[in-house]
């Protein structure tokens, strides 16, 4: 494992320095790690998801390699991977919603899919809409960037608090507390979006 950590950092560095980085080798090294991150988050009884995990890992890799942001070390790599995973999932969620809309348009009248304010209050975490969550997360990022990062690493990156603590340069307890608070905040935001807006406008 230590070996792996060193190798990945070295390779990442080499990628910046050399004109023809050994992407194949890096791929082999990071694959296991990415897969681990993805599978931690994607375990599900639903069929097809394991394959999706593979797909996700491939996509994360492509996204990272093509990105203008290049990982400079192992920790940075994880942060970028978590970010990439989130973006990909959100892209798919958008696509999915679009698909649903098309389907619904074909079948039902418009008012049935119209958004009814407040109807989200009663819904449970199981029906968590990734796009809503992502929007709320972006709002949170404006208010407290560190909490948002912790959510990204934890929820989308599947990292442990120990790993997160290193990335945010705080101790593990702080990482855990940030996660707890961010979770509460996001929950309030998603279940009762109006109340928070009110506070904002009062100011």
């Amino acid at each position: 494992m230590e070996q792996f950590n060193r190798d990945i950092s070295q390779l990442l560095r080499a990628m910046h320095e050399e004109s023809s980085p050994d992407r194949e080798l890096l791929w082999q090294l990071v694959y296991e790690e990415l897969r681990r991150m993805a599978s931690r988050r994607m375990i599900s009884e639903r069929q097809g998801l394991t394959l999706s995990t593979t797909g996700l890992v491939h996509e994360v890799y492509i996204k990272m390699m093509g990105s203008s942001k290049q990982a400079v070390n192992r920790d940075h790599f994880y942060a970028l991977a978590a970010n990439a995973m989130r973006q990909i999932l959100i892209d798919y969620a958008r696509k999915s919603n679009a698909q649903k809309r098309i389907n619904k348009q074909n079948l039902t009248s418009l008012d049935e899919v119209e958004h009814v304010p407040g109807n989200k209050a009663g819904r449970t975490y199981q029906n968590l809409d990734l796009i809503d969550l992502n929007n709320a997360l972006e709002e949170l990022r404006e208010l407290n960037a560190r909490w948002a990062k912790v959510v990204e690493y934890r929820y989308f990156g599947g990292m442990t608090f120990k790993e997160i603590a290193v990335l945010i340069d705080r101790d593990q307890r702080t990482a855990e507390r940030d996660w707890e608070r961010a979770r509460s905040w996001l929950y309030s935001r998603l279940t009762d979006p109006e109340s928070l807006k009110t506070t904002l406008s009062l100011n």
Binding site: I43, S52, S96, K100, Y125, L128, L133, Y155, S184, W185
Partner: peptide
Amino acid sequence: QGLDQSAPPEFMEGPIPLPNVDLI
């Protein structure tokens, strides 16, 4: 304001609900 109530323990702790797109 958002911390007045804490989230149910399961909230965001389970697997990510994957979008219903045929990823394959």
